[in-house]
Amino acid sequence: MTGVLEGDIGIALVNILLLTVLFVVAIAIARLRNLFAIVMLSGIYSLVSATWYVVVDAVDVAFTEAAVGAGMSTVVLLGAMLLTSRTAKPDKKFARLGPLLVVIATGVMLIYASVDLPALGDPNSPVNQGVGLTYMQINWADTGIPNVVTSVLGSYRGFDTLGETTVVFLAGLAVALLLGFGERSLAESIRREGNLPDRNAASGAEAGKEEDAS
C-alpha cells in the first residue's frame, strides 16, 4: 500500500523536481507569444519528460521521447514555423475566461475520479496484475529476449507495430502529398548552378502558378 513512501527518498525528490520543471515549462508555453520560444520550450518539455520516464523505469519510452520529442518534432515544428509566422497574435482578455472555466471543470472532475485509482507503485493494482505481468513471466521461455519491451513490441503485439509502421509511412506520404517532395529547394540548387534564369523571375513565375492553382 505504501508505494511511493517506501521507495528511495532521492527518487521521490527527483520526481518532485522534474514535475515542477514540467509545470514551469508548460505555463511558460501557455503565456508566451513568440513561436520560436514556444517550439524550443516544447523541446525542453519533451527532454525533461524523457528524464522523468527514466525515474519511473520506462527506459525505452525515455529513449523514444528524447529522440522523437526533443529531436524530430522540434525540427518539424521549426520547419513549419519558418514557413508560416514568428509570433502569435495576443489573445483577447475575456476570451480566456471560457477555456479556463472548461479546463478547471475538467481537471476537478479528473481529480475526483483519480481518488479511486490504485496507489502509485502498488504491485497488486489491476494494471500491474493483468496481461503485463503475464508478458513478463512467459517472455523468457517464449522468446529468449531479455528486453521485454522489444519482445512485446515485435512478437506479442506484432500486428500493432505493423499498424504503427504503416501509420508512420502514411503520415510521411500525406505530408509529401501536401507539401511536395522538396522540389523548390532542388530548383534553387539547379538555378545556382546556372541552368535557370534570374531568381526573381523564377520565384515570380512560381508565385503566379500558385495563385492560379488556388
Partner: peptide, 26 residues
C-alpha cells in the same frame, strides 16, 4: 520489474504522435 505494457503502448504512441503532428503542421 515495472509493468511492461504501458511502456510498449506509449512507445508506439509517441512515434505515431510525431507523424500526426507533422501532418497537422503540413
Amino acid at each position: 520489474y515495472s509493468n511492461v505494457l504501458p511502456h510498449v503502448l506509449m512507445l508506439t504512441a509517441i512515434v505515431v504522435g510525431v507523424a500526426t503532428l507533422s501532418v497537422g503542421l503540413a
